[in-house]
Design a protein around this nucleic acid. Structure first.
Lengths: 211, 211
DNA sequence: CCGTATTCTCTACAAGTATAGAAAATAAAG
DNA sequence: CTTTATTTTCTATACTTGTAGAGAATACGG
């Protein structure tokens, strides 16, 4: 009698047949979900289409995500986490205006990959309107972002690079809404359009802070 | 033999039975669509549900909107037009910073009605991601808004109330994205929440312009 | 009251969806 | 090769949706 779980048993001695890392498979499926939504839109991202994109047949997703909502919630959460990790990497060891700029540049949809992320997050927002759980995911990330931005602003004030009379909470909120709106503008821009002027808008905002 | 169309024939003399103003009926249906989306979300806004909300049975919408897409496109366009008319009313005869503030206040989701509009426009954006026609509707309105904002900024510069070195195009773009992002923030805020600080953020931005 | 053109209701249907679960395929140990 | 537990395919089901269209209801002139 063997008590070992097959997935743990790489060098096992029981009648052990298969080795699929469920967690990694889930990430593969999330990636396929992401690609499908970016390519066809969320309305065409059916379980069948996602399975196909992942290279499987219809029912293969079931053992890893019992329902479609599980899959989507996990996928959305993963995109959020990935963005936050990227932000953490880029801003590590930085502070003040420099960190604030790096933060914004990382979030703004300035390249094809992040424009795709904008095409994912908008359907997420739409679902969140009528799904309190998803709305909470959004709000918690945004609280986190706001806190980071307020800290960077405070640091910049200490350094003397931010001198405006407008208070930090208002500035951070304004900047956050700007970042969110930029997702809309980028996702709905015509196919070939590269220049939305987001760089200039960000630089403009940062310039205004020093008044 | 009678050649008059019954809908035109208010005082007719033919065997004329019914008087339904098709255009007004369409507006009623658009209103019911709007209410349904605001109440249940766009995913639950089926033809049946919309018809019910309008006080009709399933198939009654058909003569006025042959397909669901016709209904939705018309409904979205109508919300856009209504907003633009409201803006035109409020800013009529105004100019410069005053006009700019009135414009923004009219667009920002500061009351329950405009938070509902945010709950409508987000599903629209989502659909527009994969529907070039809808994307164009959005872009054309935004071009119009940008032009208006740039003009107000130019007027304010002439009046000396805007003195920043940041150029007007960047300012207008930044402000537009702020307005769009505010829709997201408001639509996903918790139910009871009244204060997002959008007023302060707008005032903060306008203050920064005078540097 | 009757006739008539319009408006609306109701039922029906074809297409597509998520999901369930039986059966086949698979891969490694013995 | 056989055994065994897992993984994947495949088919089936229950449900919802948009749409179509026949028929009933309606309202008004005569």
């Amino acid at each position: 009698m063997c008590h070992k779980s097959p997935t743990q048993n790489i060098l096992g001695s029981c009648p052990v047949p298969k080795i699929v890392d469920h967690d990694q498979r889930r990430l593969e499926l999330v990636d396929a979900t992401w690609r499908t939504i970016a390519r066809l839109g969320i309305e065409s991202a059916t379980m069948r289409e996602i399975a196909l994109e992942a290279g499987f047949a219809n029912g293969a997703l079931k053992p890893y995500f019992p329902t479609k909502d599980d899959l989507l919630t996990f996928a959305f959460g993963h995109v959020f986490n990935r963005t936050n990790e990227r932000i953490a990497e880029v801003t590590a060891g930085q502070s003040g205006l420099v960190a604030l700029r790096l933060f914004c540049v990382e979030v703004l949809p300035l390249d094809e990959e992040r424009i795709n992320e904008a095409r994912i997050v908008i359907p997420f927002w739409q679902k969140a309107i009528n799904d309190p759980g998803k709305a909470r995911i959004h709000r918690e990330s945004m609280e986190q972002w706001l806190a980071a931005m307020r800290q960077y602003l405070a640091e910049a004030r200490d350094a003397g690079t931010v001198t405006t009379a407008v208070d930090d909470a208002a500035l951070a909120g304004q900047l956050l809404n700007f970042l969110l709106g930029a997702q809309i503008s980028a996702a709905l821009a015509p196919d070939g359009q590269v220049e939305l002027g987001l760089d200039e808008q960000l630089e403009g905002f940062l310039t205004l802070l020093g008044c």
